[in-house]
Structure formats: structure tokens, C-alpha cells
Write a protein that binds this DNA or RNA. Structure first.
Length: 950
RNA sequence: GGGCGAGUGGUGAAAUUGGUAUACACUCGACACUUAAAAUGUCGCACCGUUUUCGGUAUGCGGGUUCGAGUCCCGCCUCGCCCACCA
């Protein structure tokens, strides 16, 4: 027999598959349909990368498996062919993008064939084909007609290097995702898709799809739903005739419960109220200088100066509707103009950003929420049968006059360790109480300094030394002693506790009561905003209410007074789709001489991308320079009409390509009703980097088309799986600059496609990172060689191998279904290792080759052929395993004594419980541990183990 | 700073979801075949002690639940990815 020669047999079978059009399916037969989809590639000049190789291998394995199971499987491929690199290449070389793209696509197809991927390339979707983008434009028109498209002049992210507008999602750390240039804000007329109309559905319907949990979570976070309250701060004392539109500032907050802690109001630099009130602002120049400066802030300024800045609007006061308090108004760029209402109520005590700002500008900080500690467990838990007594209390942290020591109380009877604590009498301030308690309880008389620490804290617990439930409101004071002047405390003060000095550095480990721990933390780390929920303080009618209840009550009050309402806000913004680029789908819009936009009617679609353009970007869209486009527009619509010169974001093209595959050649519809039966996609495989853009936009398209009535379903991808990254052997990302990029062509040349495929699938689970280490690939190559050589090790019968074969059939089938390709391969290795030693019956060998076929299709075809079959192995069906053959006759019964394995005994499978126990107890090894002891319990797990407890 | 995920031999990784931890591979070592090398095959490979047997300790660290924990609970540590003024 000839030795295994992958190069030869792979070329041979790739030609056969091509000639037989083995990837062709009858798309009108949807009886047992299955749609598995890859994320189509952008045809770049560098060709297929290893990430594609991995995910396309996974889908090819899955596709071949499903096909053998008898499904009519749609497994298409295409190209996301519009995009910047081809245009940039054109700028450099003058080669038109259409040509570059065509050449690159041919290379991709060659590469995909060389890896044995079985796609029907006569049924591609290529986004730059007029036949394809006709329908991109048609969908745009449908969205337009249904109010899902609008044009707005607004600040947009402008990349000065790419000379184009880019979407929020494409801005990374204030830099262009593609070229790394700093993003500027530029006013541009821009077309938007109203993706925010679907924000709620985009969150809710994630519950209905089988996607990785973290992908769902990230997408939910990206959409960023937040429920809160919007309400008005009136502007104080506007002179008559000045009131107009700016008599109030509307703010958005998720924490209306903190409203009594408002000490100022902040508006974003672009907030209209500033110009509306311009004449009232005393420090106009300063304010406008600030606004101008924040507009031109680059990402560098922001990174370096993390500190918040702002300017007060002198002469303007806002009125808190809850308590009538007048507070100053600031403009500051830490408030975003395009989120919420562009204005916030500032509560420094309960918001970190406001805290920082207030500290910097020395603004007042007012507590309105207190943390609350309720003891629910243990001996201090509140008791239903005890009375609750409310008390104001103080905690005093007393520092030694010379050493770094704190005076503490040890309540040995109760197990408490605390600072000095005591009640506040009527007609006594907290500070006075603290001083009095220190003198009475500690005996020390000479107080040098006293300073308040933190705010008010509430606690609810059972006070066993008093036999009552306590609801305590506690403040904390830090006291430094002047000297050791001391008067022995009265006995009643010290009967429950004993005073002791604790080293300063041990203090946080010493105190063990919740309120004391709380103050200790503030004492050690300093104060900050308390941002969690708690109970209301300093809040008039809402005292001691929980944050949650207060939010409801306060919002209801605002609604009743018509001052505000409950609202839901989303982080998600509408999708800006205009790009000032050439190599994209033209937006099917023309403008009348008056500048009114009109849709290009359907009969003129595709609205062709002109060819007579100069690619060099000037900030004006290249399409503006096309004579042909201008003439075409005027010819159809009349003199003076002009075309829209912007093209669409390429994410638009890729948001619906999966809808086209079932019916790619249809010139009348994007997909016929009949062929829509293929949809939605059953399994989608691709990189996790598409979580935020592509996957979100595609979901939006389907929801929008569903709403308009073109689709009957609401989610495009029922099951989604990500492949991990392919890294170099040191675990580093591959990049041109590091020179560690691996080219799939080289690997196929060196090891053969089947080995490359096997290695990709074997080395790690699909979703984990693959470290590409050429040393390790020999493992799967050896395996394939062994499979090959089994052709010479055929025996008449080998029941042990037959049993292993059926076990492998079961395991491989289940593992492919669950996309656990690595363990599927290891099951085949176990089988082959045994067969290599003891031979294999021809029937078993055929079964082995059949289950190997999805992974190593070329070799499988070749052996199958050598075994005398004339048809492709992929025509045969996935074998069923024989349940009788996978049953083990004997099992190893594990015997544990007190949880430790003491013996394993070979017994008949399905042994009865009594019998198993008997066998276990008869074991000499077990006896050594059991004899003379009382057996308390015996646990039996069927066909697994006996656990004896003595 | 926030969110998510992960830590198991020299390495990539398994573990039917609470039931013999380290399957399957790579590397490494020894041996066989060979004039030699490659290829191939056989054996060994978590750690410590006895070197047939056996016992003890190990899944980042520390506790807990359980007859039994890599898996569940609590508290730490380290790494990775994503997001980062979203009120």
C-alpha cells in the first residue's frame, strides 16, 4: 500500500467535489432543512487568516455531520466586499476597488477549497454586487417609508485620516477603530437608522435565543437600559419677558431618592439653556470660553487630566421642587449632552462624580441617604417579641495622647468589640454627647481635638444588655487626647465592658460590630460618596423610608404635580450610517433643487455606484465628483436635482446577508416567500468581537423587517457560538508588526488540510484560544497516519475494537452536536490506538472512517474509495450505534471508606445493591479499615461506587 | 474604577455536571528496529516516602457544606478579555 500522501489525495478529492458540485443543494426542498452560517469574510489582500480557518473548519465539520444525518443543509459563503482597505489601496495605487476585491475574493475561494471547505460558490452573497446592493437599497427604502430612517445635522465622530464619519461603536478610546487617529466632533448632516425604537425588544428577545451567556450580557449592557425619573428644576427669578423656553431645567436621574441631597445642578456644554439664558449669565465670557475649550478637547487632554472641570453660571439659580432650595447651576463636560436630558441634579454625598466635582470646587455636600445595618442572624438578630427603641447614638474613636493607639471597648459577655459608644440626650448635640461619653466611659478628661467622621448611619439589632430591639441613628467623632488625665469611671459604666488600647494598625481587625466597622473604614480610608441604597435622612416627608420606596413615592408625587415622570433611558444611540467614502453602497436618495430628499424609486434600483470618480479623499464624498452620477440624476429626476453623495456604513451590508443566501439569484425580491422557509439561521459561528456591532445591527434589521411585515420571525440567529482567538505558540496575538502571523496556505502545504483541520479542532475547545504550535500538530498527523495504515490491519473479527467503535460513534455524534470537537477526536484516538495494536474488522473500519469524515474529509473519501465504494462517503448516513455493544460487561466498583478510595473490585455490570455491598465488605483491603468499627452508613451509586461510613 | 471569564502535571487539555482527578495529545527519558539518523513501535512521565506491593499529599490560597468537592457556598490572590464619566 502506498504511504499517506495528503497533498495528492487532497487535490484529487477537491477536484472531484468541484466536478460533482457536491455542495449544491435543492433549495426548494425545505422538508428537513438546516441552516448553518459562517460570518462571511472581508476579502483583504492578506487572505484568509487563522481565525477564519478555525471557525470555518468548525462549521464545515458541523455541516458535513448534519448532512450525513439526512438534513438538507444550507451552508453558504460570501463576501463582505465593500470597505475601506480596498479604497485605501485604490488611493495609493489607482487600482479600482472592484478589481482589487475581485482578485482577493478569488484568492479566498482558492484558500477555502484548499482546506476542504465545501461551499457552493455559485450561490454567494457579495455585498458589492449590484444584484446584492439593490436589495440593501430596497431595505433602506422600506425603512425610510416606515419612519425608521431620518436625517439630522448633528455632532458626529469625524476621523480626519479616513475623512469620514464613523459610528459610536467604531470609536475606541476616542480613536478611530481602523486607523487609530484621534476622533474630532464635527457637525454633519447624517442619515440615521432608528435602532433605539427597538431597544426594549433587543434586550427582551435575548431571552429567546441560544447564545453564550456573556455575549447576551455584554449586549444588554451595551444597550444600557436604565429606569429613572425626569423632572424640572425651575430657574429662579427670571425677569419678565425673559422666561420663554428656558424657565426650567429638566434633569434625568436614577436616584430621585437622593433629591434632598442636591446641592447644585449641572448642564452639558451643548445644553440649549445656556444660550437661552445668555443675557442672564454674569460670567458669559468665562462660560463660553469653557464650552469652546471642551468642544476642542482631544482624547489626550481627557486621558491626562482625569479631573473634572466646570464653570458656574453666575446669576442663575435652580429651584429644587421638593424643598424649594435654590442651588447653583454649573456647566461641566462630565455631563453628556446626548444622554438623558443633558442635565443632572448633583448629589455629591451619593454620587462619585458629583463628589469629586464638589470637592474640587468646594461645594456643599449634604447627606440624604444613610446606610442601614439590620442584623437578621445570630444572637443580635432583631426579635419579634421585643420592643423596639429608637435612639440617637454616637461613636467616639479616641486616640492616645502620645502613641498610635485607639481606646476601645471589649464587651466580653456579648462578644462585641467596639469603639466608645453612647446615647445622645435630648437638648444635646452629637459633639457634646461624644465628649461627655468619652469622659464618662473611658475616664480620660483632656480632649485636645474633636472632628466628625462620615455621616449618619442607621442600625437595627437586638441589644441583649438592655433586652430590647434598638433602632439606632449613629454619628461618629474622632477625638485626640491631650494627656493621660484620668478619673476612674463609675462602676455602672464599666460593668459590661472593659477598656483597652489597640494599636492603630490593628484597629480594623479588632472592631466587630457592623456600624463600628463602617466608621473604621471611613476613618482609615477617608470619606467618599455613599452610592448604595439605604434609608432617607434629612428628607422631610420621606424620613426613614427605604431608597426603593422613596423613588416610587417621589416619582408619583412629581407626576401628580405634573413636574416630572418616570422614564426609561438607553445608552444605545441611533445608528449613523452615512460615510463620505466611495467603496460602499450608495444611499438611494436624491435632492430636489430646494434640497428636499426623495427616495430613488424601486424601478431605478440598483442605484449604481458610479465608476468615474477620483478616490482621493478631500472631506467631500468622492461621489460628488462623478459626472455620470449627476447626469443620471438629472435625467431621471429633472434639472437641478442632485444625488446623495454619501455611501452606507458597511455594517448595513452585513446586517442582512444571511437573509439573501436562500435565494441569491432572485431579481424580484430579496428572498421569495417560499425560500424564507430556510430562515432564521439555525447555527451561527463567528468571533466574539462582533458582539456589539454586527450582531446588534443584524438583530435590528430582522426586527425592523418583521415590523414592516417582510419577515415572520424576530431573531436572526437561533444558536450562536464563538470561536476563540488563534494565538502564536507563546500565546500572543498574531500581528504583522510582531511578524508572528501564520498563513493557512503554508500550514496546508506543510501538514496537509486534514491535519490542519484536525489540529484546530483537537487542540482546544472551540470557544477557547488556540495556541498555534507546529510541534504539536504531529500528534494529529500521527493519528491520521495510523488510521491510514489500518487498511493493512484488517482482521476477520475483533469484538473489543467493535465495542470501542460503537462507543466512539455515540461520543463523536454527541460531541459534534455540542460542538465539543476536541473530545470527539480523542474518542477516535482511543479507538485507533487499540485497532492499531490488535487489528480491526472491515465493518468497524468503515464505521470509523465514516465518523472521521467530517473532520478529515479527504482521507475519509480516499479510504472509503479504497474499500470499494464508488459513491462519496458523504452520501452515506451517520451510523447508529448498537446500545448492546457499548455496554460494559464488567465494571470497576470503587469502594470508599470514610470518603477515601480503599479498593476497586471488578464486578458484573448492573450488579444489585445488596450484592455490591456484600462484595465490598468482603474485600480484604476494605476490611482493614472497617473491622472492629461500627458501620454507620453505606451509600451505593449504581455501577460506580460503594461508600462506607464508620 | 466597573462588568465578565479563567486558574488542574514541563505544555495543550479531560472529568458523564457532586462519585476512581490528570482521559487524549505534545515535550522529555529509556529501550527495540537500524551501520547511522529519521520514521515506527514498546515502556515510563503530578509530588513525597518505601521502590513488586503500598501509604501519604495534590485541581491558585484560606475556610465551609457533604459519606464524598476540580465541580456547590463564603472570603482572599493572580491572570485575561471587554467597557470606562451613561447620572
Amino acid at each position: 500500500m502506498e504511504s499517506y500522501n495528503p497533498k495528492e489525495i487532497e487535490r484529487k478529492w477537491q477536484e472531484v467535489w468541484l466536478k460533482q458540485a457536491s455542495a449544491k443543494i435543492d433549495k426548494d426542498d425545505t422538508r428537513k432543512k438546516f441552516y448553518i452560517l459562517d460570518m462571511f469574510p472581508y476579502p483583504s489582500g492578506t487572505g484568509l487568516h487563522m481565525g477564519h480557518t478555525e471557525s470555518y473548519t468548525a462549521s464545515d465539520v458541523f455541516y458535513r455531520f448534519k448532512k450525513m444525518q439526512g438534513f438538507n443543509v444550507l451552508h453558504p459563503q460570501g463576501f463582505d466586499a465593500f470597505g475601506l482597505p480596498a479604497e485605501n489601496y485604490a488611493i495609493k495605487t489607482g487600482v479600482p476597488p472592484v478589481e482589487t476585491t475581485r482578485k482577493n475574493m478569488e484568492n479566498y475561494i482558492r484558500q477555502m477549497r484548499s482546506l476542504g471547505f465545501n461551499y457552493d460558490f455559485s450561490e454567494q452573497a457579495i455585498t458589492s454586487d449590484p444584484e446584492y446592493y439593490k436589495w440593501t437599497q430596497w431595505i433602506f427604502s422600506e425603512f425610510y417609508k416606515n419612519g425608521l430612517v431620518y436625517k439630522k445635522t448633528q455632532k458626529t465622530n469625524w476621523c480626519s485620516s479616513c475623512q469620514t464619519v464613523i459610528a459610536n461603536e467604531q470609536v475606541v478610546e476616542n480613536e478611530c477603530e481602523r486607523c487609530g487617529t484621534g476622533i474630532e466632533q464635527k457637525e454633519m448632516p447624517t442619515w440615521f437608522f432608528k435602532i433605539t425604537d427597538f431597544a426594549e425588544e433587543l434586550i427582551a428577545d435575548l431571552d429567546n435565543v441560544d447564545w453564550p451567556e456573556y455575549t447576551k450580557k455584554n449586549q444588554r449592557a451595551w444597550i444600557g437600559k436604565s429606569e429613572g425619573t425626569e423632572f424640572d428644576f425651575a430657574i429662579k427669578d427670571l425677569p419678565a419677558g425673559r422666561q420663554g423656553s428656558a424657565e426650567k431645567i429638566r434633569v434625568f436621574t436614577t436616584r430621585v431618592d437622593t433629591v434632598y441631597g442636591v446641592t447644585y445642578v449641572v448642564v452639558a456644554p451643548e445644553h440649549p439653556v445656556i444660550t437661552q439664558l445668555e443675557s442672564q449669565i454674569a460670567n458669559r465670557d468665562e462660560v463660553f470660553a469653557y464650552i469652546e475649550k471642551s468642544k476642542n478637547k482631544t482624547e489626550l487632554d481627557r486621558m491626562e487630566a482625569k479631573e473634572k472641570t466646570g464653570v458656574e453660571l453666575d446669576g442663575i439659580k435652580a429651584v429644587n421642587p421638593f424643598n424649594g432650595e435654590e442651588v447653583p447651576v454649573f456647566v461641566a463636560d462630565y455631563v453628556l449632552g446626548n444622554y438623558g436630558t443633558g442635565a443632572v441634579m448633583a448629589v455629591p454625598a451619593h454620587d462619585e462624580r458629583d463628589w469629586d466635582f464638589a470637592k474640587k470646587y468646594d461645594l456643599s455636600i449634604k447627606q440624604s441617604i444613610a446606610p442601614i445595618f439590620v442584623v437578621k442572624e445570630g444572637k443580635d438578630a432583631i426579635r419579634d417579641d421585643a420592643e423596639t427603641v429608637k435612639r440617637k447614638t454616637v461613636v467616639a474613636i479616641i486616640k492616645h495622647w502620645e502613641e498610635d493607639k485607639i481606646f476601645c471597648l471589649n464587651w466580653e459577655k456579648f462578644g462585641w468589640k467596639s469603639f466608645i459608644i453612647g446615647g445622645v440626650e435630648d437638648n444635646e448635640s452629637g459633639e457634646e454627647a461624644a465628649i461627655r461619653e468619652v469622659k464618662e466611659e473611658s475616664g480620660f478628661q483632656n480632649i485636645k481635638t474633636i472632628r466628625k467622621i462620615g455621616g449618619e448611619v442607621h442600625s437595627n439589632f437586638y441589644a441583649s444588655h438592655k433586652g430590647e430591639n434598638r433602632y439606632a441613628k449613629t454619628e461618629c467623632y474622632y477625638i485626640e487626647l491631650g494627656d493621660g488625665g484620668f478619673i476612674e469611671p463609675k462602676e455602672e459604666e464599666t460593668k459590661n465592658h472593659r477598656g483597652e488600647w489597640v494599636k492603630l494598625k490593628d484597629i480594623s481587625k479588632y472592631v466587630n460590630l457592623n456600624v463600628h466597622e463602617w466608621f473604621c473604614k471611613i476613618f482609615e480610608n477617608g470619606d467618599g460618596a455613599f452610592v448604595e441604597d439605604g434609608v432617607l435622612v434629612n428628607s422631610e416627608n420621606y424620613l426613614e423610608m427605604s431608597s426603593e420606596e422613596a423613588r416610587e413615592k417621589m416619582t408619583a408625587w412629581l407626576e401628580e404635580k405634573d413636574l416630572g415622570k418616570k422614564v426609561v433611558n438607553y445608552r444605545l444611540r441611533d445608528w449613523s450610517i452615512s460615510r463620505q467614502r466611495y467603496w460602499g453602497c450608495p444611499i438611494p436618495i436624491v435632492y430636489s433643487p430646494e434640497g428636499e430628499p426623495h427616495l430613488v424609486p424601486v424601478e431605478h434600483l440598483p442605484w449604481m455606484l458610479p465608476e468615474d470618480v477620483d478616490f482621493v479623499p478631500t472631506g467631500v464624498s468622492p461621489l460628488a465628483k462623478s459626472k455620470e452620477l449627476q447626469e443620471r440624476t438629472e435625467k431621471i429626476f429633472g434639472a437641478g436635482f442632485t444625488a446623495e453623495y454619501d455611501t452606507m456604513d458597511t455594517f448595513v451590508d452585513s446586517s442582512w446577508y444571511f437573509l439573501r443566501y436562500p435565494d441569491v439569484h432572485n431579481a424580484q425580491e430579496f428572498c421569495s416567500e417560499k425560500r424564507k422557509a430556510w430562515l432564521p439561521v439555525d447555527v451561527y459561528i463567528g468571533g466574539a468581537e462582533h458582539t456589539y456591532m454586527h450582531l446588534l445591527y443584524a438583530r435590528f434589521f430582522v426586527k425592523a423587517l418583521h415590523k414592516i411585515g417582510h419577515l415572520s420571525f424576530k431573531e436572526p440567529f437561533l444558536k450562536l457560538r464563538h470561536q476563540g482567538m488563534v494565538l502564536d505558540k507563546e500565546g500572543k496575538k498574531m500581528s504583522k508588526s510582531k511578524g508572528n502571523v501564520i498563513n493557512p496556505d503554508d500550514m496546508v502545504e506543510k501538514f496537509g488540510a486534514d491535519s490542519v483541520r484536525m489540529y484546530m479542532m483537537f487542540v482546544a475547545p472551540l470557544e477557547d484560544a488556540v495556541m498555534w504550535n507546529e510541534e504539536n500538530i504531529v500528534g494529529v498527523r500521527r493519528f491520521l497516519e495510523r488510521v491510514w495504515r489500518l487498511q493493512e490491519k484488517i482482521v476477520a473479527e475483533n469484538t473489543a475494537v467493535e465495542s470501542l467503535t460503537h462507543k466512539a460513534i455515540k461520543k463523536v455524534g454527541e460531541d459534534i452536536e455540542a460542538m465539543k470537537f476536541n473530545t470527539a477526536i480523542s474518542a477516535m484516538m482511543i479507538l485507533v490506538n487499540e485497532a492499531d495494536k490488535s487489528g480491526i474488522a472491515e465493518s468497524s473500519y468503515e464505521l470509523l472512517v465514516t465518523i472521521l469524515a467530517p473532520f478529515a474529509p479527504h482521507m475519509a473519501e480516499e479510504i472509503w474509495n479504497n474499500l470499494g465504494h464508488t459513491e462519496s462517503i458523504f452520501v452515506s448516513s451517520w451510523p447508529a450505534y448498537d446500545p448492546e455493544l457499548i455496554k460494559d460487561e464488567k465494571i470497576n466498583l470503587v469502594v470508599q471508606v470514610n470518603g477515601k478510595v480503599r479498593d476497586t473490585i471488578e464486578v458484573e455490570a448492573d450488579i444489585a445493591e445488596d450484592e455490591a455491598k456484600k462484595v465490598a465488605l468482603e474485600s480484604e483491603k476494605v476490611k482493614a479499615y472497617v473491622v472492629g468499627k461500627e458501620i454507620r452508613k453505606i451509600i451505593y451509586v449504581k455501577n460506580k461506587l460503594i461508600s462506607i461510613v464508620v
